[in-house]
């Protein structure tokens, strides 16, 4: 086992772990965005709330979420640790540097961008994740047609003594399902009415874009995956999908709720 401790304390080993956790977080982002796009269903949060229950109760997802927490912490703190170490490798700084002549801005500012994202994560998790787990959330009851899946009616059932994340009752007689959920949708709706939060989200998504524009392809390089045939594709995915589309996808949510959504 000692040989692996050598690996993890070596420069290359450390950066590989950062790369690996980073790539995992990239995958998470895709899933997270996919899930959250359910905010845009015009169903008063039914799909999203149902999905939220699934994501917080399914044992496999739960397991993965622990990996996720670990990845976030490792990626952030190992990354910062490396940035600190790297600074120490140049005890006397240059008076003049011209970094833009040899590298892209994002690549030189991953620590800064990462820190912005870390701050964002703290706010984001407090607002939603912690709120969902431990906060006093509203409850909503949805009545769904068993045959068509159509939502027949909703009702605010907050303060009626519910404590579960959600449950489903089947009313065979009326061919209906009764869903009662902690209403995450309402939390989001309310959260994105606050200008400061919206601003933070937008800035953070820009930071995320830059972070990923460098980070995605950089992870491949760190893992040793660099081949002229595939570099172009990797860079393209890193820039277009992770650098632009995904952050825009996330940014549409606060924008939509702040500017266009009416309750």
């Amino acid at each position: 086992m000692s040989r692996f401790s050598g690996f993890f304390s070596s420069s290359i080993g450390k950066k590989m772990t950062v790369a690996l956790t980073g790539l995992f977080l990239c995958i998470f982002l895709v899933v997270h965005l996919w899930g959250n796009l359910q905010l845009f269903y015009a169903d008063e949060g039914f799909a999203l709330n149902k999905y939220t229950v699934f994501m917080t109760t399914n044992p496999l997802i739960k397991f993965i979420s622990y990996v996720l927490y670990f990845s976030i912490l490792w990626h952030a703190f190992k990354g910062l640790h490396l940035a600190w170490q790297n600074r120490r490798a140049r005890p006397v700084r240059y008076a003049v540097t011209n970094g833009k002549a040899n590298s892209i801005w994002a690549s030189r500012n991953m620590g800064l961008l990462g820190t912005v994202i870390l701050v964002f994560l703290a706010v984001h998790l407090t607002n939603f994740w912690a709120e969902y787990h431990w906060g006093e959330l509203p409850y909503t009851k949805y009545v769904v047609d068993l045959g068509t899946g159509e939502i027949l009616g909703t009702e605010d059932v907050t303060g009626q003594g519910y404590s579960e994340k959600g449950f489903v009752l089947t009313d065979i007689e009326n061919e209906q399902e009764i869903h009662v959920y902690k209403d995450m949708y309402k939390v989001v709706e309310a959260g994105f009415q606050q200008p400061l939060i919206v601003l933070l989200y937008l800035v953070s998504m820009i930071a995320l874009g830059f972070h990923l524009r460098h980070g995605f392809q950089s992870s491949f390089q760190s893992m040793g995956l660099n081949h002229p045939k595939y570099n172009g594709a990797i860079r393209w995915v890193g820039t277009v999908i992770f650098g632009i589309l995904i952050p825009i996808g996330f940014a549409t949510m606060p924008i939509y709720f702040y500017f266009f959504h009416t309750t």
Binding site: N102, S103, S107, M110, Q221, S222, N226
Partner: peptide, 23 residues
Amino acid sequence: GNCTNTYACEAECPKLISVSNIA
């Protein structure tokens, strides 16, 4: 220090050694 893949090295290398070597 540790490599963070800025590729400044390749851009400034007088012999244009490629960062694919680092990979």
